[in-house]
């Protein structure tokens, strides 16, 4: 009888030992996706007239400049210095992104009620005069919006850069700072941007996170409307 007990416990112990080893660092890795942080930075793609770019706008001390008017979209990064001046601003650009803030190169922006860029593009192709009836707003100057230093936030001090920014298009992402952590919600508004030389672009914020759900990675859909 004692051999019987011994056998059972030997089997149980062996089972335990076998089970233990493969499970040390966990199971089911394949259940999850493997997000990439930077591979899609600065990339653009197109589907018909609608194009898309993704950009790393995570740095508080950088503006990411985008030129929409060339067929080949271009990106340039500028650096905001300690005295809040910028170095590296390109000659040619349409919009610039600083985290979720946007400024334009002497453009104006209007929100629309359209649900998608394609819907707006179709409506404009049928009646281009609709673009002129929108309520366009130019950039405004601010010294309380472009955050460059969060490190003293707990003491009630946040460092801002003096800059122009466009209040209308910057509303594409609502950040509720009254709770911690802040709650982010996209407004899903389709915007029309009117350049200084009279061209029109539809713009839509598709995502503000990368594949790893890290915030500050902006994916924007756009289309030329003329």
């Amino acid at each position: 009888m004692s051999n019987y007990f011994t056998s059972i416990f030997a089997v149980a112990t062996l089972g335990i030992a076998i089970t233990l080893f493969p499970a040390c660092d966990g199971l089911f890795d394949d259940m999850y996706d493997n997000g990439k942080t930077s591979d899609n930075n600065g990339k653009n793609s197109s589907e018909g007239k609608i194009r898309q770019f993704s950009i790393d706008a995570t740095e508080y001390t950088q503006w990411q400049y985008v030129d929409l008017e060339n067929d080949e979209i271009s990106f340039v990064t500028s650096l905001i210095e300690n005295d809040t001046t910028e170095t590296g601003v390109p000659d040619k650009w349409t919009i610039a992104l600083h985290r979720y803030d946007v400024k334009t190169n002497n453009c104006t922006v209007a929100p629309t009620d359209y649900q998608s860029v394609s819907e707006l593009a179709e409506a404009v192709s049928a009646d281009k005069s609709a673009l002129e009836q929108l309520d366009y707003k130019a950039d405004i100057f601010t010294d309380k919006k472009i955050t460059i230093d969060m490190s003293h936030m707990m003491e009630g001090r946040i460092g801002y850069a003096k800059s122009y920014y466009n209040e209308v298009i910057s509303s594409w992402l609502n950040i509720d700072m009254s709770v911690m952590p802040p709650i982010y919600s996209m407004t899903h508004t389709i915007f029309v941007l009117k350049t200084s030389n009279g061209r029109f672009f539809a713009l839509n914020l598709v995502n503000y996170m990368n594949d790893k759900s890290e915030k500050g990675y902006m994916t924007v859909e756009y289309a030329r409307l003329d």
Binding site: F9, A12, T13, I16, T19, L20, A23, G26, L27, F28, M31, Y32, D33, N34, G35, V206, N207, M209, D211, K212, S213, T219
Partner: peptide, 21 residues
């Protein structure tokens, strides 16, 4: 005699990219 295994995971599901990281 006992053996116990417990694995607790957290992930973020992005509703735009549909990635579960």
């Amino acid at each position: 005699l006992s053996y116990s295994f417990d694995q607790y995971d957290k992930s973020d599901y992005n509703t735009v990219s549909h990635n579960d990281i």
